[in-house]
Design a protein around this nucleic acid. Structure first.
Lengths: 131, 131
DNA sequence: TATTGTAATGTTATATTATTACATAATGTG
DNA sequence: CACATTATGTAATAATATAACATTACAATA
């Protein structure tokens, strides 16, 4: 629940809401320094919490973080993204299907599925048209 | 072709061959310091090349690198891994199927698939049995 | 309201991962 | 050999992330 976010957590969530783009931890830090947050630790703490509750996801290959606009994101820890290889625009995909599919794959390899991280790179329509 | 790897590239590929586990750049650096390699730059350069030719893949969520044992890996830039969430054992999955599937998803979103990065987390059999 | 326990914050330092920029050496080709 | 190209070496620094510990805020309850 967003209501019980702490002061710092709300601050940083707001930075995401305003930008609606993937952000890096130190970009966020620079944004909130005006508001009194001084150290990376504080940012990373908030990011951790926001990730735990599924409001923010990390894009591993980019070391960046993206707000989740799904009202109640299923992807607490599992995430699937489409990333444009040219302009870096990123879209999150909802994915019950993926989880089921990946669970089966895990079974084949004698593993118990817990979560996944999927990044699909491709050229978005506007970048395709620019050529 | 492995034959036309440079001296440093071969050195570092050998470190992977000996360990056969995911390695971090600075772990590699410590290993090869005996052999005269002194700086991270040198390691990262070799890693870049090894990744380009598909002999090594990066595991983004771990900032680590893994040798690819497929004789001629299809996954030059696309990779799919199973990662044990407990012991961190990692297995690479070959995946023509994935690429096809992800291409279709890209089409649905008006994108042209280029590559992907998939990390499926799950508990491996030996970790399951330990409980 | 005083006490006390917990969660949140603040602060400093440092670890880890990766790149830039530039200098030097080695190697192949005309 | 001369020259271009590729590989190496070297130093500095940027970018990302965590550890450790001090302080404050705040709610529960005696």
């Amino acid at each position: 629940m967003i209501e019980d976010l702490s002061h710092n957590e709300k601050l940083i969530l707001n930075v995401f809401k305003k930008s609606n783009k993937p952000l890096k931890a130190y970009q966020i830090l620079f944004q909130v320094q005006k508001k009194g947050i001084k150290s990376p630790t504080q940012v990373y703490r908030a990011l951790d919490k926001l990730q735990e509750i599924g409001k923010v996801h990390k894009i591993e290959s980019r070391n960046s973080y993206l707000i989740c606009n799904n009202t109640d994101c299923l992807n607490k820890s599992s995430v699937s993204f489409l990333i444009c290889n040219l302009c870096e625009k990123i879209v999150e995909i909802e994915d019950k299907l993926f989880s089921n599919h990946f669970s089966k794959i895990c079974e084949e390899f004698n593993r118990k599925y817990t979560q996944h991280n999927l990044e699909i790179f491709g050229t978005c329509i506007s970048c395709s048209e620019k050529k």
